[in-house]
Design a protein around this nucleic acid. Structure first.
Length: 423
RNA sequence: GGAGAGGUGGCCGAGCGGUCGAAGGCGCUCCCCUGCUAAGGGAGUAUGGGGUUUAUAGCCUCAUCGAGGGUUCGAAUCCCUCCCUCUCCGCCA
């Protein structure tokens, strides 16, 4: 959520900023509702004040044993009037809240212009896609070779967009998780954390998945809980309604979790293989930082994710998302795209964003240092470090041999009991 | 799942329809006293919103005693629903 005060006092600037990402802010509507809110709120509070004052007087009169009937007659119609104003005020405030919750974050000045992924800017590139002296297969044919990956059975026991993995591939999948957690905790200073995979609606409001993206979530209606679409949700919400000690910032968490996404609206997209699944695993990096530090932190966090790709020796490029391609809550996002020989292109494997105070405001996540009179909003960031399923694919496709076997990346052999090839 | 108890300010803990945003204690901040890492005295010490304002100063005001409804001129106090915590029993990875 944007600063309501900014929205009130300077809607033109806000409109211009969010306009860069293709969001049309109706300034006239905003101003109209806002002025209505103001007059209604002032009136309502005056009435409340009157009621409080008079009720107090009644109490005092009664204590002295005076006749309070005349006083009661005086306030007879106050209640109805107040009730009416309150209802109208609530309606207007709700309208305003919905409007504010629906406005995306303002892109940072350094975010490139553009409307879709074609306008994303390449920031840097690492590694060379290797030349194969045979026709490289994609992960689906590589995985199905010995029944290591089974999409049909997954469809039988669940639905499409799920997978069953077995044997060394299942182990490689686990090895990637261990490797990433170990790297981020030992080398990058993150604290490993384990969190609930079902969260309440408040948490999804906090990070911005609700109210706008309800159809993307798996909802357990009986208990009104949601399967997490990413560990970002439970981890970032650790700070919800908290005042963190400023001296303890930054808080850096690394969290492995499954992620559940309905993928509504992506029918027919990436239907083959493990690229886009309803359930996948991810090692997520989350940082809660001092507002002055978030831009440094974004560069740092992106670098942490890149380190994983470098250690796995997977070629990738770093893209700065253009204004029109960024997620709802982000002020700036870097995507890491890994080279997939099976597709002959770079595909997203990580997304690292600075949300500034956008999520923090929704969550009321604040910090306070000794020299501060009042608490202030923290800044939040997160990034995949990395998506496990897609990393697995990348390893399979980039490390495949002519015979269809897969060489185990050196960084992973300690986690594979020394196994060098998956046959 | 069954039976009970309870959710109040940073913490502990009173309050059981009126002058309560809330006694008291602890903690914290400032001041005083004290010739010494103790003790004592005094003052202060919740958060969020709105209005006014150049102002994150001041002033005015509203809301908040787990959450949401209700009764009432008036609710921390009464009623209803929900959530959470604790104790005992049952079940169970």
């Amino acid at each position: 959520m944007l600063d309501p005060n900014l929205l009130r006092t300077n809607p033109e600037d806000v409109a211009a900023a969010v306009g860069r990402r293709g969001y049309k802010l109706d300034i006239e509507q905003l101003k109209r509702i806002e002025s209505e809110r103001k007059s209604l709120q002032v009136e309502t509070e005056q009435l409340q004040n009157e009621r409080n004052t008079r009720s107090k007087a009644i109490g005092q009169a009664k204590a002295k044993g005076e006749d309070i009937q005349p006083l009661l007659d005086e306030v007879a119609d106050l209640g109805d009037k107040l009730e009416d104003r309150k209802n109208r005020l609530n309606a207007v405030q709700e309208q305003l809240r919905e409007l504010a919750l629906g406005i995306p974050n303002m892109p940072h000045a350094s975010v490139p212009d553009g409307s879709d992924e074609d306008d994303n800017a390449e920031v840097r590139r690492w590694g060379e896609p290797q030349a194969f002296d045979f026709e490289p297969q994609d992960h689906v044919s590589l995985g199905e070779r010995n029944g290591l990956m089974d999409f049909e059975t997954a469809t039988k026991i669940a639905a499409s967009r799920f997978v069953v993995m077995q044997g060394p591939i299942a182990r490689l999948h686990r090895a990637l998780i261990q490797f990433m957690l170990d790297t981020h905790t030992a080398e990058h200073g993150y604290t490993e954390i384990n969190v609930p995979y079902l969260v309440n609606p408040e948490s999804l409001y906090g990070t911005g998945q609700l109210p706008k993206f309800a159809e993307d979530q798996f909802h357990v209606t009986e208990q009104d809980l949601y399967l997490i679409p990413t560990a970002e949700v439970p981890v970032t919400n650790l700070a919800r309604d908290e005042i963190l000690d400023g001296e303890t910032l930054p808080h850096k968490y690394v969290c492995h979790s499954p992620c559940f996404r309905s993928e509504a609206g992506s029918y027919g997209k990436d239907t083959r293989g493990m690229i886009r699944q309803h359930q996948f695993e991810k090692v997520e990096l989350v940082q809660m930082v001092h507002p002055d530090e978030s831009w440094n932190a974004l560069e740092e966090l992106t670098g942490h994710a890149e380190t994983i790709l470098q250690k796995l020796e997977l070629p990738y490029r770093t893209m700065a998302l253009c204004a029109g391609d960024m997620g709802f809550s982000a002020a700036k996002t870097y995507d890491l795209e890994v080279w997939l020989p099976g597709q002959g292109k770079y595909r997203e494997i990580s997304s690292c964003s600075n949300f500034e105070d956008f999520q923090a405001r929704r969550m009321q996540a604040r910090y306070k240092s000794a020299d501060m009179k009042k608490p202030a909003l923290i800044h939040t960031l997160n990034g995949s470090g990395l998506a496990i399923g897609r990393t697995l694919i990348a390893v399979m496709e980039n490390y495949q041999q002519a015979d269809g076997s897969i060489r185990v990346p050196e960084a992973l052999t300690p986690y594979m009991a020394g196994m060098e090839f998956i046959c």
